[in-house]
Amino acid sequence: MVGWIAPQLRDEFPGLALHYLVLDRGSGRSPREVKQRLRSLSDRFTGGEAINLRHRPIPWAYRVFYRHIGLDPDHTRTPVEQLALERMKHGTFRSQSLLDDALTIAVIESGVALRAFDADRVAGGLGLRGSAPGEGLEGRPGELPGGTLVVADEARPIALLFGATGSGRGVRPRTRRTILTATQVKGVPDIAVDEALWLAADVMGTGG
C-alpha cells in the first residue's frame, strides 16, 4: 500500500513516499536460519563496504534528504548507516528479535529506510505530514514545533520522520499484527522499496 503525503510535502519533495504492508504476526525470537542469515550478512558486510556506503546511490539519497529536512546524518544516522556502524562496533550484526533481524537484513541488502509499527494501534491509513499547532507525540513531553515532519495515521502523529516512535505505537511483545513501512525519497527506485518490504516480510514469514 502507498501512504498519503500532505500536498505541501509532495510539492516540496517530489519522490517522497511512504509504502507499507500489514503482516498478521508480531515479532518473537529469531529462528536459527534467520540468525545464520544474519551471520552470513555480517561476513559479507566489511569495513570497506561501510566506508563506501556514502557512495552508493540509495544511502546517498537518504543522506541528502536528511540534509534537506534539517537533520545531520552524522548525528541522526540513516537506518543503513546506523546498522553499518553497529556492525563495525560489535563485529557482527547482533540478533535481537525476529522483527529487528528482518529489518536489519532488508535494510542492509536494499539500503531502504524501513521501520515497523503495531498495526492494532494505528487508526486508518498511514502518511507523512507536518505537525499541526498543539500536536504532540505520545511519550514525548510538550508539543511538537509546528511543521515537524511526522509519520501519522488518520488520528495523530505516531512517529517523527526518521526519528522517535510514539509511545505504544511500536512493536511490542504483545503485538499480533505489524505494519512494515518504507520511506522512499528522491533517488530511491521503486524496485528497491518493493524489494526491501518483500525481504523483510519474507524473513518475518520464516518465524513460523
Binding site: 566506508i51 557512495h55 529536512i69 534539517g70 545531520d72 548525528h75
Partner: peptide, 25 residues
Amino acid sequence: GELFATAFPRRGIEFGVPAAGGPRV
C-alpha cells in the same frame, strides 16, 4: 562522501556539518 572515502584511513579530518534542526521543511 567521495572525499570521506578517499581520506580513509586517515583519522582526525572533520567531515561533520551541523544540522539546521528538524525534521521540517
